[in-house]
Write a protein that binds this DNA or RNA. Structure first.
Lengths: 214, 214
DNA sequence: CAAGATTTTTTAGCCAAACTAAAATTATTC
DNA sequence: GAATAATTTTAGTTTGGCTAAAAAATCTTG
């Protein structure tokens, strides 16, 4: 089996710059030959080779076949990690607040090309209430301290310290702090809340409380 | 502008079953016409219409153009949420342990078709050490209690209560509990640790400590 | 090290589907 | 109801997704 890759073999493609590189990397992780992947995916060996070297791009159907053979979601080939500001320290993260009396946020997640996870520590003031919202993506909330009430698709629950909720964000969801003390939450989602590529993100992908404040 | 969609218009496509539905939903969220999206993406209006109704599938290049216009990652069109077991309660979650003396896990994340987020509360015993590993995906760790040492791509840091780390998982990473008390961590990643679609996931996408124990 | 086997790359295509322009239909607005 | 806007349909064109087979590169084994 040949080892080593000639990086210059890989031509960049605008749609998924790293598709070929990632495909080859994953294939090699699994120690599969081009022929094996091709056979299992129902494609030709030459085609897989050309995809890996960036010479051609697969159709969505072909990409789905290959992804299944390599046991990863298609998105695996469509993102590109980098590396940036990976560690945060409690008490040293900047705290953001949109308006007086609103929730405060500390950002945990770092930004690298193609990153999917976005995370915040949210300080939710007493009585703060968020109107129902739904949007693309997926999110979870873990209660670090205090209590809140969460409602997802009509299902209402009180969450206490250590409790959590995880749901696709296109289910109608809302939340509020029903107590008279601040609640502290860890929010993790698959959409960016701040500093997205455009302002459109802000109006569409914000957590419920931020939406309320705008 | 026409309202309402005839669901029967949308033929299922194997590669990305909800691509068209999600594309139309997103376009309507942004209140854009087919013509506007087509113009901005450099494609024809009829083609966008056919994609939305599942009659045809775009190439990756075309999908990238459309995704950019609609300000979402391509992956947005390639997943499909559902709904399942969304709430967890501290103290009531089953605790998993692979072997005596190893870390204990409580699962937070729910499973629904196409879900991306996977989360665990991990109880890391004193002295427990994980060999360096790298794999596909992305992950973050938030320290709920105690202290651990984390190393990512040679960068070593002690994380204390409230601290966090977030990095692509294909960077070499390891961690250990350097103290003499248990540490409690919240781990969130974009790959499944247990109960994946195949056993291959287990050997490749596990958090560092599980890997150590096997 | 050489021979054989295996794997990958290259080449020369085919053809289906990615995509078009324009007409027809539907929906919206005034 | 008429005009306008938005979407769908239709009848194509073209190009790139994908092939089989040959050539080249790499690996394995004695």
């Amino acid at each position: 089996m040949p080892t080593g890759v000639a990086p210059t073999d890989v031509a960049p493609s605008g749609a998924a710059p790293d598709l070929g590189v990632r495909l080859r990397a994953r294939r090699r992780e699994l120690q599969l030959t081009l022929q094996t992947v091709a056979d299992r995916a129902g494609l030709s060996v030459g085609f897989i080779s050309q995809i890996e070297r960036g010479i051609t791009q697969p159709s969505l159907a072909s990409l789905a076949s290959v992804a299944q053979v390599l046991d990863v979601p298609m998105a695996h080939f469509l993102s590109q990690p980098g590396g940036e500001q990976r560690f945060t320290v409690a008490g040293e993260r900047p705290v953001y607040r949109i308006s007086e009396g609103a929730s405060q946020f500390e950002r945990l997640s770092s930004e690298f090309a193609g990153n999917t996870l976005h995370s915040l520590v949210i300080h939710e003031p007493p009585g703060h209430r968020i109107a129902p919202i739904r949007h693309a993506g997926e999110e979870m909330v873990f209660v670090l301290d205090g209590e809140i009430t969460v409602e997802v698709e009509g299902e209402q629950r009180v969450l206490r310290r250590g409790d959590s909720v995880h749901h696709p964000s296109d289910q109608v969801h809302s939340s509020w702090n029903h107590t008279d003390t601040e609640a502290t939450l860890l929010w993790v989602g698959t959409f960016d809340v701040f500093g997205g590529p455009s302002e459109t993100d802000l109006s569409d992908g914000v957590p419920t409380d931020t939406r309320r404040d705008t």
